[in-house]
Design a protein around this nucleic acid. Structure first.
Length: 818
RNA sequence: GGGGGUGUGGCGGAAUUGGUAGACGCAUCGGACUUAAAAUCCGAAGGCUUCGGCCGUCCGGGUUCGAGUCCCGGCACCCCUACCA
């Protein structure tokens, strides 16, 4: 019988399951536990969608599985768990579309996912499976929320939020794309609503600094830095003519204040109503109404030209003492800085466009450009920058002027240096059913009371009436019996439960703690285990989670660190994003192009080992690459040939397999393969590891020699990549134990040396001849040989030799002139 | 506008510190086996060539005995982000 994955693979999957082969002992590394090095390799757990696993999942999971299996063979106690990101909008939308309860559809979907994952032979410790929708799990999500509340990091706020009427909920900023909801593409509008918020902004600095410690891909770090958006500048106070109230602006260029010829307020700014003059009121009110109706995207989009309206009021520029007009314009955002800016049209592009459109004065205060043509944002000596107050910036460069101006503002009590962040607080409530209930009650005076910890979990009540409303009223609020309660500890004091639920990203922000100790009912995780296992050594997942999920997880981990629950501030030591697998047509796989591939179909036709190796062989793990259906045949051919190295046509081991010592040639091939695969697996270069295995099989197939030592070593080397195949062969070779914990072979350097090598001879940079020489030949010997070579002579003779060099083991280079 | 990335055969991709460009695989072509096909096995293959060689890693320069790799200047494509003061 030839290689037949359909009969081999299910058998070994059952074997692993029955023997709990991949059960992890997380007491390893803790006091009293086994003294083994630990390795935590984690996949981004999936949202179990209705359509099942796709090839992108398989790519990431195959990569992490290879590492997990390799590390086990290298003697590590490996934690490689799997779970379900099952709460949240997508799961609920799917349920509604199928007209079933989300609990029912979610359970069904994840059963399907689990069986699909098992069919691919991933070495997960299934006894540690967790789901974010499980009360035993979300008890601790709620616990963390209460801790955040206790530390004033959770609060309610009347905030402008992204409201999506079609979904009936608010959305986080990263759930809104181009003014439409990420799920479903429904329109999203801005609307003030009272919301639970988490104060992630308090961690902005630490989230930024932490990036220097972790091994993440550079683009991901860049994206996170960009989201945090740190900028240094100054707040400055402008008096308002005829009013007691003053205007506070934020600027990164206080040095240009002498050129500030007007100010602009965001339409929502508190002062607008107060300072607007009667003549201007009608226009201002109309403008504000219009701005309110626009989504943030329409306001901040790339619209040519800027809109705005004059308030009739004037501010006093503290540097010049001049009266400058105050305008309202929607290019100034209430959510950033102070919602008010001083405008320096000479040196800011947006201000320049605005000034040009509305015919406001432009003053040059930094030399180097032509401010009548465009804003000059570069550096240069300051000009027109001295005032009656004795302040003089003229001649200073940008940095000097910023320092001097900032010091002056501080001395005069007119401002202060400040660091601001673009990052905004995390909107932590959804007006939806399928999420963790927020464990607080609100009394009749509107005061919030947290539930005591011992009342957790606060179960998500069952109801058939789970659909969202378009008004913003949460489905849970319709459950009058559930909502009506009393203040904890005060049975006489009526209260109502919070009816909003947490967003989908709540559970995923800490789930990697729970895998360490999934059934602990006293703590979210045993601190000894956390200490032994965190941070996660390798985290593999898609780049779509580069910012949202990664930042939320990092934030929560830092918080858990602060309250003594986490031993580390950064949860993930190393992050790898698998590149997207495109369709064969080089376009994104999906319904739109009908170019999707179902991994389960591939397994039926080719087997799981072929699928795994094929996806790893496509190209570098982090790179985007197209699917190539016939490439599957190539990998299957490889496994077939590998099989025939061991077995004859009726499936029995070859009689020619012997215990003779390996020839030097075979030994070199074996050790080269061990070294290359080990090195490439550590570096996650799976594609080149596989090509070395192909070289091994190609070479060995040509030989009649079948030394057991070589074949066993290759089986071990192959096993992280094609585990079912390797288990089958391993047992045929007479081993009773699973190959999963057999030691990975060590490459023997001494076996790699060759006696005789071929050395190319380069003349003026071009290879002209090749010599077969002893590997340890010295320069003078090879020089003699090279110069007596007939071909080389033809290129060298009669010319002046400028250079002769022997790069040992690589090449000879000769440079001649004339 | 800002940030990040990528350019190598027909295709996916290989190439320590600068050191034989095109490993490995796909597709292609030829041959063997077969009544035939599939499967399998063996072999060819960057382009041009007057068969001496010459040209070839997006383009143009530079450094070097030697550049896919380093430096300078362009071009193209992709991704992210976007009025953040």
């Amino acid at each position: 019988m030839t290689y037949d994955p359909a009969s081999i693979e299910p058998r070994w999957q059952s074997f692993w399951e029955e023997n709990a082969t991949f059960r992890t002992d997380t007491t390893a590394g803790t006091p009293g536990g086994p003294d083994k090095p630990t390795y935590y390799v984690l996949d981004m757990f999936p949202y179990p969608s209705g359509s099942g696993l796709h090839v992108g999942h398989v790519e990431g999971y195959a990569a992490s599985d290879i590492v997990a299996r390799y590390k086990r063979m290298k003697g590590f106690e490996v934690l490689h768990p799997m779970g379900w990101d099952a709460f949240g909008l997508p799961a609920e939308q799917f349920a509604i579309s199928q007209n079933v309860h989300p609990r029912e559809s979610t359970t069904k979907n994840l059963d399907n996912f689990r069986s699909q994952l098992k069919a691919i032979g991933f070495s997960f410790d299934w006894e540690r499976e967790v789901g974010t929708f499980d009360p035993d799990f979300y008890k601790w999500t709620q616990w963390i929320f209460l801790k955040l509340l206790e530390h004033d990091l959770a609060y309610q706020s009347e905030a402008l939020v992204n409201w999506c009427p079609a979904l009936g909920t608010v959305l986080a900023n990263d759930e809104v794309i181009d003014g439409k909801s990420e799920r479903g593409g429904h329109p999203v509008e801005r609307k003030p609503m009272k919301q639970w918020m988490l104060r992630i902004t308090k961690y902005a600095d630490r989230l930024l600094d932490g990036l220097d410690e972790v091994d993440f891909p550079e683009p991901i770090k860049a994206m996170q830095r960009d989201r945090i958006g740190r900028s240094e500048g100054a707040d400055a106070t402008f008096a308002i003519k005829g009013h007691d109230a003053a205007l506070e602006v934020f600027t990164t260029r206080p040095d240009t204040m002498f050129g500030a010829t007007f100010c602009v307020l965001a339409p929502e700014h508190d002062l607008v109503t107060e300072i607007t003059t009667d003549e201007c009121r009608a226009a201002v009110d109309a403008y504000r109404a219009e701005a309110a109706a626009k989504s943030e995207i329409a306001r901040t989009g790339n619209d040519a030209g800027k809109s705005g309206v004059f308030t009739g009021a004037f501010a006093i520029n503290p540097a010049t003492g001049a009266e400058v007009p105050i305008w309202v314009a929607d290019y100034v955002l209430m959510g950033y800085g102070t919602g008010a800016i001083m405008c320096v049209p000479g040196h800011d592009e947006r201000d320049w466009m605005f000034a040009t459109k509305f015919d406001l004065p432009i003053v040059e205060v930094v030399a180097g450009g032509d401010v009548t043509e465009a804003a000059y944002v570069g550096n240069g000596p300051h000009v027109n920058s001295s005032g009656a107050n004795g302040l003089d910036l003229n001649g200073l460069d940008k940095e000097e002027a910023i320092t001097k101006m900032s010091e002056w503002l501080e001395a005069e009590g007119l401002g202060r240096r400040i660091v601001r962040f673009r990052l905004r607080d995390w909107i932590f409530a959804r007006q939806r059913y399928w999420g963790e209930p927020i464990p607080v009650v609100i009394d009749e005076d509107g005061e919030v009371h947290p539930l005591p910890f011992d009342e957790l979990p606060l179960d998500l009540p069952d109801t058939a009436d789970y659909t969202p409303s378009e008004t913003g009223e949460s489905p849970l609020s319709r459950m009058k019996d559930w909502v009506a309660t009393t203040v904890p500890g005060q049975p006489d004091k009526p209260a109502r439960r919070e009816a909003d639920t947490m967003p989908g990203s709540a559970g995923s922000s800490w789930y990697f703690f729970r895998f360490l100790d999934p059934r602990n009912s006293d703590a979210l995780c045993d601190p000894e285990k956390a200490k032994a296992w965190l941070p996660v050594d390798l985290y593999v997942g898609g780049a779509e989670h580069a910012v949202g999920h990664m930042m939320y997880s990092r934030f929560w981990t830092k918080f858990l660190y602060d309250i003594g629950v986490s031993p580390v501030e950064e949860p993930f030591k190393r992050l790898v994003n698998q590149g997207m697998i495109l369709g064969e047509d080089n376009r994104k796989m999906g319904k739109r192009y009908g170019n999707s591939v179902d991994p389960i179909d591939v397994i039926k036709e080719y087997g799981a080992d072929t699928l795994r190796m094929f996806e790893m062989f496509l190209g570098p793990i982090e790179q985007e690459k197209p699917w190539n259906q016939s490439g599957l045949d190539g990998v299957r051919r490889f496994l077939n040939r590998a099989w025939r190295l061991y077995c004859d046509d009726d499936g029995a081991l070859h009689a020619s397999i012997n215990d003779e010592p390996m020839s030097d040639d075979v030994a070199r091939l074996v050790h080269q393969t061990i070294a290359k695969v080990a090195e490439d697996t550590e570096g996650l270069r799976f594609n080149t590891a596989i090509s070395q295995m192909m070289i091994f099989v190609n070479e060995m197939s040509k030989k009649d020699d079948r030394p057991r030592e070589a074949l066993e070593a290759f089986c071990l080397v192959l096993s992280p990549y094609a585990p079912h195949f390797a288990e089958e062969i391993w047992s045929k070779l007479g081993h009773k134990e699973s190959i999963a914990y057999a030691p990975f072979p060590e490459a023997d350097e001494s076996k790699l040396v060759e006696d005789s090598i071929e050395v190319p001879i380069q003349v003026n940079g071009k290879v002209r001849a090749r010599l077969q020489v002893a590997a340890d030949i010295d320069e003078s010997t090879i020089k003699e040989l090279a110069l007596s070579d007939e071909t080389v002579k033809g290129w060298v003779e009669g010319k002046e030799m400028k250079v002769f060099k022997y790069i040992p083991g690589r090449l000879v280079t000769i440079a001649v002139k004339g």
